[in-house]
Design a protein around this nucleic acid. Sequence first.
DNA 1: TTTTTTAATGAACAACTGTATGATAAAATT
DNA 2: AATTTTATCATACAGTTGTTCATTAAAAAA
Lengths: 188, 188
Amino acid sequence: MKQLDLRIIKTKESLKEALMLLLKEKALNSISVTEICRLAKVNRGTFYTHYGQVENLFEEYFKEIMQNLKDSYLEPYKYAWTIHTQELNPATIRIFHHIEKYEEFYRIVFSKTAPLNYYYLLFDHLQQLLDEDMRLHGNDKIDTGMLSAYQANAILGLVIEWHRQDFKQTAEEMNKLLVELLKYITRP
Amino acid sequence: MKQLDLRIIKTKESLKEALMLLLKEKALNSISVTEICRLAKVNRGTFYTHYGQVENLFEEYFKEIMQNLKDSYLEPYKYAWTIHTQELNPATIRIFHHIEKYEEFYRIVFSKTAPLNYYYLLFDHLQQLLDEDMRLHGNDKIDTGMLSAYQANAILGLVIEWHRQDFKQTAEEMNKLLVELLKYITRP
DNA sequence: TTTTTTAATGAACAACTGTATGATAAAATT
DNA sequence: AATTTTATCATACAGTTGTTCATTAAAAAA
């Protein structure tokens, strides 16, 4: 009967809370283990029994956001899109709104110093969503795996451009832009 | 009359050489400043007067490869492609061969721990090449900036997938794959 | 060649890293 | 409630980091 030790839960919560506080002040790559432990009032050795480095702690936060991405996809629609229903599938439509909602988080994930791993993880989640959606509603004669990979790339490319332009567009505008681009590409 | 001090050149060369040696043994993110300086027989303080961190030293190597990417684009064709001349522009055709040539380098650049910054730098170079090519040979009624950004994303997405599959395809196969994908996308 | 400039050096510094220890106390098990 | 398990703790260690400073020596300028 393996029960989760309450001490572990408390320690992890303290560490996460400390990291969240620090992230509002400084960049992820400039936050030290010592700093987190001081703020969390947790022994430094204890940090190392759970996480090897600050990034591993951040990844727990990452997983939460990814779960939310998936959840928001399963939720009934509630955004202000209208025209794109036929042109974009639900997973695509929602990704921009999701990112808009967690802008602070994605500023970290797409910052210059962030490890490429976050990009890969995000890619995997997005591809999976697109792939599931295609198999449910799409043409089943095509290789959904390859196509979802290509589409995930296209969308993430657009998201990166969005980030580089400091998220100045709204999520709705990004959806429109994607539709325009697809129109241009598919009708040369 | 600002002349480049010979001592600086020698120091930088030693440091670079040491980094290159270490990169053959271990990952970039596990190489310490101390280690490089020990091997290069350069004082650690001297390292810090030129570079703030190991990544900055690596970026000099990065610039070299980017220069080569540009050079190889200006060179006359010498690869074994035939069919794609009408379907892909020269910059696109060459990128896969270039990456194949410097596979070792790109394994580092696309590794999970590599900072996203390398991706951004590579993107910028690629986009510039595509944009130049479009303005020379392409339709000048369209927004080449936006289009080159989209194309650079599509190609880099494919390259990332290539890396994740351990570069098992040849550069020529990657060109063919891109042509196939574009065909599929533009003829739905 | 001599003088001037300045890059490289060695040494020292506080702070952080990653790891290991036995002691303590909180939780789970009986 | 008593016992067992184990997470956390304080402490210590050698090694790395990033910085500073006076000294040395190599290069550039005169």
